[in-house]
């Protein structure tokens, strides 16, 4: 595949599926700097993955697979290097959330997702974006049964949390 062609495909994917990129970024990285860093990492990996895309799966499935695997690897790497890492506080990133507090319910939902472990976060994003158990299992390399068990727990956890929140009058 020519570089020009690869770039065109990438531009199209980013234009049409930007929401997907940012959902993963927002679920896995918490500060604006980390979000920018993870966004760059995911974008780079998606760009590299383009020659390997044969069209067997939907583009969204492919991007989600790459993005989630990158985010999980990034989280683990960040955790290892977090102690020795210099703080970037005071240096503003090139992109920010347009209106992070625009919908507090969405912000709350992300907050709950962030409290889950890496695999559960992936499953939650995929569940909320309407992927089937089969697709989730294929993307994350686990069995459908295990996906089912995990999803039931996640659903129960999230609905429980939302009821607590309503009960607290928030």
């Amino acid at each position: 595949m020519q570089k020009d062609e690869q770039q065109q495909v990438f531009d199209g994917w980013l234009r049409n599926h930007q929401g997907l990129f940012f959902k993963v970024v927002r679920a896995y990285a918490f500060t604006p700097h980390d979000q920018e860093d993870l966004f760059q990492e995911i974008a780079t990996q998606v760009w590299r993955s383009i020659p390997g895309f044969r069209g067997d799966a939907a583009v969204t499935t492919w991007i989600y697979r790459v993005a989630l695997n990158t985010a999980i690897a990034w989280t683990q790497k960040e955790r290892r290097h977090r102690d020795g890492k210099q703080s970037l506080d005071g240096v503003e990133p090139a992109f920010l959330q347009a209106s992070p507090a625009a919908d507090p319910r969405v912000a709350w939902l992300y907050e709950q997702i962030r409290q889950l472990n890496e695999i559960d976060r992936s499953l939650t994003l995929l569940l909320l974006d309407g992927f089937s158990y089969k697709e989730m299992a294929a993307m994350l390399g686990i069995t459908e049964n295990y996906v089912g068990v995990k999803i039931n727990r996640i659903e129960a956890h999230l609905t429980g949390k939302s009821r607590e929140e309503i009960g607290n009058g928030v």
């Binding site: 929401g19 959902k23 990133p93 969405v106 939902l109």
Partner: peptide
């Protein structure tokens, strides 16, 4: 709630 964010950009350039 999750689907509401599909209608608008989540991030913007600074």
């Amino acid at each position: 709630i999750w689907d509401t964010q599909n209608d608008k950009p989540v991030f913007a350039m600074q």
